[in-house]
Design a protein around this nucleic acid. Structure first.
Lengths: 384, 384
DNA sequence: CCATCTTTGTTCGGAATCGAAGTTTTGTGT
DNA sequence: ACACAAAACTTCGATTCCGAACAAAGATGG
């Protein structure tokens, strides 16, 4: 019925449309139509007025925002050793957030059971108790087929291949569920929360594994579904290490958190997580620092041609290793040294603005996009 | 006035909308509105009916096409040693086409003078004499700033830096002129004429230089303006050769047509053009074949990570060297050997469908997009 | 402090768009 | 050969949407 109500809601959600006049400009609709439509959306409980903004030389705009009681989404970041979860309102603001340890190798049944339990528990908390759940976004540390909402051909997740986690959660929670790769989500999250005006962005997630998410023209680029893989690019190293893919000079086999821990173990230094690795770097343990710096150099070596090729506005460095300054410095150095001046002139290289939350927030942003693009908006409108 | 007439024309132009019913489905407009609007467009001379199509179980559709007398665009491919030119109708069909030798090092004044003269001469030919010129698309063999319609920082085009060829042609011809890099245009041309349903495509142009054009989600990806550069990626070679960028292991310095000719000259074999190079390969001259195969291997080595990263549907090989079978075979081999199975499983690797016309046709497609997205459609409608 | 210009938002009549029902023309099944 | 379904348009009344003028609120500048 109401053809373009969704457009208006989406503009408000992204923070681009803050007043009726601005919505009219951005949506191309007539100011009068926008006014009417906004009135309906307010009546339906989707939008609400939020005081007045600053004048720009005339009457002050009556600011609009999404009504905080309209509904919430749940965003989940499933890591190899943790489960992070948040409840977001429709504008993407975090209402609740918590993390618990986990182990993805326990297998899909175990993990999704635990996940489900925690989602339900979280939704019973006072802050969000009465609010309808509209969707769930889940990030997984491996290749994902978003259409089927399954993990496919994962390397460090035994038992997960083809497990239909999306369908399962969707059936049990009764809402739409989107599943996506964690590096892709990091790109989405950083784009949405950190660099909303930069339409071409690469986000490198260097943690236990190494992956990259791509935002092209403001949208997540998936290619045929596997885009962003940088883990099996050959790098220049003296000693070959056999990778899971069968080659011996893959970036992942030499520069991932897992690879670094393996090397340290051979030197008699036992490290259990990427976080501990970074602590050792910050404590100034020379062997570890050298290793991490070298990993950064290798990552930079791989990223250089990709930056020339894709020519992004921003290169975001995230994941556990990005908390280690030598890693970041080495990546920066390699890129500035070897990329074309034309490609680096206006390039921003930054660590993740949203830090450890990037993937989780990306999951939220993705499912929010889906919800706001769905029939839900029109249905809610016509329901009252 | 007529808000969405342009959408309909564009759908017909792209070949997606072939009947009123199909247009209604694709545009989202009501069938009745489409019918009325189409009637107007036919009256205005923009569309015409073109017989009936095959039935799909009911009444046969009355097929629509752009009226061939509505106007034309000129597409130009400025090469280092040639000038190719065509006149296209609004649907992108070639009406006239011709090539003449040229030398880009003569400088911008000389070349654009010659270009202008030939455009004017071509437009006086009987086939297109009465038809209004609506735009010109120009491809240049170097980096281009499309917004300013200038060449920037070219390496093999002395005198061209910042030369405002777009503005100059536009002033003298009185129509809009778009200027774009040749590899980008090859991607556009191949996407439009060869792989219209594949939305992610890489087109490698291996001729005198080496470049790559990117189609992401169906649109030309420009990044910050320099996207697609693969010429200065380091490759593994025994003997360093200093490149114009100051490094010694750039792909371009070892695998471009210019580099191969230089190497052959050192061996006492004088070759004047990429075409002659390919002839020698086809004649089975072993030194040349080895060299070209090695160039293909190097190009493949550079493309491998890019294919993993971008994960396209299609990789198009074009430019002079792509006519040499050993070059193509070596690229294919390198990619299938080292890319991820997930990335190559559904990947098509093909030589340019439109052959030597790719860049020129891409220039036409690009300017056609601009014309059909401009006010021209609405103006023509309201003019009668 | 008042006139003027800007910007925001609303009112209301006319025009464009929709959508449901109808017409035309064809495949399909019996 | 016939009824029936299906697809491609067309007609026409009901609705929506636009756009120009207006009202509200405030900045600017003498």
């Amino acid at each position: 019925m109401a053809g373009s109500a969704g457009d208006l809601v989406r503009l408000v959600a992204k923070g681009h449309g803050r007043s009726r006049a601005e919505l009219a400009r951005l949506s191309g609709m007539a100011p009068s139509s926008v006014s009417l439509r906004v009135e309906e959306l307010i009546d339906a409980g989707l939008l609400r007025e939020d005081g007045e903004g600053a004048s720009r030389g005339g009457r002050r705009p009556r600011q609009l925002r999404l009504h905080e009681n309209a509904g919430v989404v749940v965003a989940v970041d499933v890591g190899t050793h943790h489960l992070r979860m948040a409840v977001l309102d429709l504008a993407g603001r975090v209402l609740l957030e918590h993390e618990l340890p986990g182990d993805i190798t326990e297998g899909p049944e175990q993990v999704s059971e635990r996940l489900l339990e925690h989602v339900r528990m979280t939704l019973r908390q006072a802050t969000v108790e009465q609010l309808p759940l509209l969707g769930v976004g889940i990030g997984m540390p491996g290749p994902v087929d978003p259409a089927a909402a399954k993990v496919i051909a994962p390397s460090r997740m035994p038992g997960w291949n083809e497990y239909p986690i999306g369908r399962r959660m969707s059936e049990l929670l009764g809402v739409r569920v989107v599943v996506e790769n964690d590096a892709n989500l990091m790109a989405v999250g950083e784009h949405r929360y950190g660099w909303p005006d930069r339409d071409n962005l690469m986000a490198v997630k260097a943690g236990t594994g190494i992956g990259c998410g791509i935002i092209a023209s403001g949208k997540l680029h998936r290619g045929r579904g596997a885009a962003g893989d940088i883990s099996h690019v050959p790098v220049h190293v003296p000693e070959p290490v056999t990778c899971s893919c069968g080659h011996s000079d893959c970036l992942e086999a030499h520069a991932s958190g897992a690879a670094l821990r393996r090397t340290l173990r051979a030197q008699g230094i036992e490290v259990s997580s990427s976080r501990q690795l970074v602590e050792l770097v910050n404590d100034g343990v020379p062997e570890v620092t050298t290793l991490v710096r070298n990993a950064g150099r290798l990552a930079g070596q791989v990223l250089t041609p990709l930056v020339n090729f894709f020519n992004p506005d921003v290169l975001v460095l995230g994941g556990g290793l990005s908390a280690a300054e030598p890693f970041v410095a080495a990546v920066r150095g390699a890129i500035y040294e070897r990329c074309l001046p034309l490609a680096t002139r206006d390039l921003e290289i930054a660590t993740a603005v949203t830090g450890r939350d990037a993937c989780m927030l990306g999951a939220g942003a993705l499912v929010l996009d889906e919800v706001l693009a769905s029939e839900w908006v029109d249905d809610t409108l016509s329901a009252r």
